[in-house]
Amino acid sequence: MATQTITTDKYKLYPSPRNRTKDVFAHEVFVPYPYAIIDLDIMELAGKTTLFAACRLSDMKMGQVVTFELEADRAKFERLFTPD
């Protein structure tokens, strides 16, 4: 089964099979570590989130994009996330 990509103004996104929704939310964080393990469940975020493997179109840098329904969750993620 082929993975459907999503192209935005900033990124080419490859959805994680663990996502519960296909939405790309307004609040986002680009993580420049394509192989880092991002476990959103342990962060106990209040709103919905989605995780994508990503290519940043401005410089073709690979990484991951996490999108958040709530701005507070984005801030909490940035505070808690540390790459492996």
Rank of each mutant, 00 (worst) to 15 (best):
L40H: 13
L40P: 02
L40K: 14
L40M: 09
D41M: 13
D41A: 15
D41H: 13
I42W: 03
I42E: 15
I42C: 07
M43F: 15
M43I: 02
E44N: 10
L45V: 03
A46M: 14
A46G: 14
G47M: 14
T49N: 10
T49I: 01
T50N: 08
T50Y: 00
T50I: 11
L51W: 01
L51T: 03
F52C: 01
F52Y: 06
A53Q: 09
A54W: 07
A54V: 03
A54D: 08
A54L: 10
A54I: 09
C55W: 07
R56V: 05
R56M: 05
R56Y: 14
S58N: 07
S58A: 06
D59H: 00
D59N: 02
K61R: 14
M62S: 13
G63S: 12
G63T: 05
Q64H: 09
Q64D: 07
Q64I: 10
V66W: 04
T67L: 06
T67V: 04
E69S: 10
E69F: 08
E69C: 15
E69T: 09
L70M: 05
L70N: 15
R74P: 02
R74E: 03
R74G: 04
A75F: 12
K76H: 15
K76Q: 14
K76A: 12
K76I: 01
K76N: 09
F77E: 00
F77D: 02
F77H: 02
